[in-house]
């Protein structure tokens, strides 16, 4: 009950919402680069929204199923097909025993997610199924998938309730994005000019872009007294500015602590826009307050809550009394 990897794609790994509780031991959080797509894919198939999915980079995998399943595909558009017939993204799909799911190169976005109803049968390591390849922790033997890997599913599903409602509309990812940031923790290490450069210049996404971070190029950001600090904690989205003055946005596999000044932190709700942005894409930063960032966080969470509530709602069978030829009949309608 599950699937076999026929072709692994460029870099396909198992990722959930991350490995929390071990940063004090030096273990990075990891988890999905695009948390929003992970959450949506899981909600569509009735999983806990933090459940592990397959995360595929740039060029997707080919999977052959040996049982029925319900899946959903979100994130980058890798033109998914089942048995060579195109299938839609962003909705729950039936898979039958023997079906082959495959993907091509992405048209829009970098990271694509596949959620499986019931979740993959992967043993959690330190409370998470996420793969951290550098230390070979989690996922399948701590590495990206290879041809021949067999992954089981923890529950058998051939359909889900409210199947027709399990979809949502998504806009394409853009190549010019504005990322909202909260200034700090080390904004006081930068000159006024440095801060104003950071908030007004246009930056370009470079090819130094992986699960650990994304280096940007553009106008150098000036510090007051160099860029070294006594190492402190690095949050996801932290914008590090080393000696060369080019901002680096720290992402899922970032180290737990580091010794470069951090001018600002991209809010969690905007990280998906960055991780799905192609190399050469244009980035601008806009400063907002912590209070405003919390309103945005709550609004995004409310949207997910609403979708989840709609899909998990149990529709009570509706009863009607119908008179036919003077006979009263009770008719029950259910989903």
């Amino acid at each position: 009950m599950g699937f076999t990897v026929k072709n692994p794609g460029i870099s396909t790994t198992v990722q959930d919402s991350g490995r929390y509780g071990y940063q004090a031991s030096g273990v990075p959080v990891s988890g999905a680069m695009d948390m929003h797509s992970l959450n949506l894919a899981n909600i569509l198939v009735g999983n806990d929204r933090n459940e592990a999915c397959l995360e595929m980079l740039m060029m997707g995998a080919t999977l052959e199923f040996d049982s029925a399943a319900v899946i959903a595909i979100t994130g980058a558009d890798m033109k998914p097909t089942v048995n060579k017939k195109p299938v839609p993204m962003n909705e729950a799909l039936y898979i039958r025993n023997g079906d082959v799911l495959s993907f091509s190169a992405s048209d829009n976005g970098n990271y694509c997610y596949v959620a499986f109803a019931g979740g993959m049968d992967i043993t959690p390591v330190m409370g998470s199924r996420s793969t951290y390849m550098k230390a070979k922790i989690g996922g399948v033997e701590g590495r990206k998938l290879v041809a021949g890997d067999k992954i089981g599913l923890r529950e058998y599903h051939f359909k889900l309730p409210n199947m027709k409602m399990r979809h949502f509309d998504r806009k394409d990812y853009e190549s010019e994005v504005t990322l909202r940031v909260v200034l700090g923790p080390q904004d006081d290490h930068f000159t006024d000019e440095g801060i104003s450069t950071f908030l007004s210049a246009e930056y370009t996404v470079t090819s130094e872009f992986d699960r650990m971070g994304c280096r940007l190029s553009g106008d150098a950001v000036a510090t007051k007294n160099g860029s070294d600090i006594i190492s402190d904690g690095i949050c996801v989205g932290a914008v590090q500015v080393p000696k060369h003055g080019m901002p680096i946005v720290m992402l899922a596999d970032r180290q737990t602590a580091g010794g470069y000044t951090k001018i600002a932190t991209v809010i969690s709700s905007d990280l998906d826009k960055l991780v799905q942005c192609s190399v050469g894409g244009k980035i601008r930063f806009k400063a907002i307050s912590v209070a405003h960032s919390h309103e945005i966080y709550k609004a995004k969470k409310a949207l997910l809550d609403e979708l989840e509530a709609k899909l998990t709602k149990h529709y009570e069978p509706r009863k009607f009394i119908v008179e036919v030829n003077d006979k009263k009949l009770e008719v029950t309608l259910s989903e």
Binding site: G184, D232, H294
Partner: peptide
């Protein structure tokens, strides 16, 4: 108190490496 975006906060006790400062870190944790 130094904000780390919308999901983090750094509580900073000083700007040097010393056992006294580090013991305040351990105590708060």
């Amino acid at each position: 108190y130094l904000p780390l975006g919308d999901t983090g906060l750094t509580v900073e006790f000083g700007n040097e490496i010393s056992p006294a400062i580090n013991s305040r870190v351990t105590r708060l944790c």
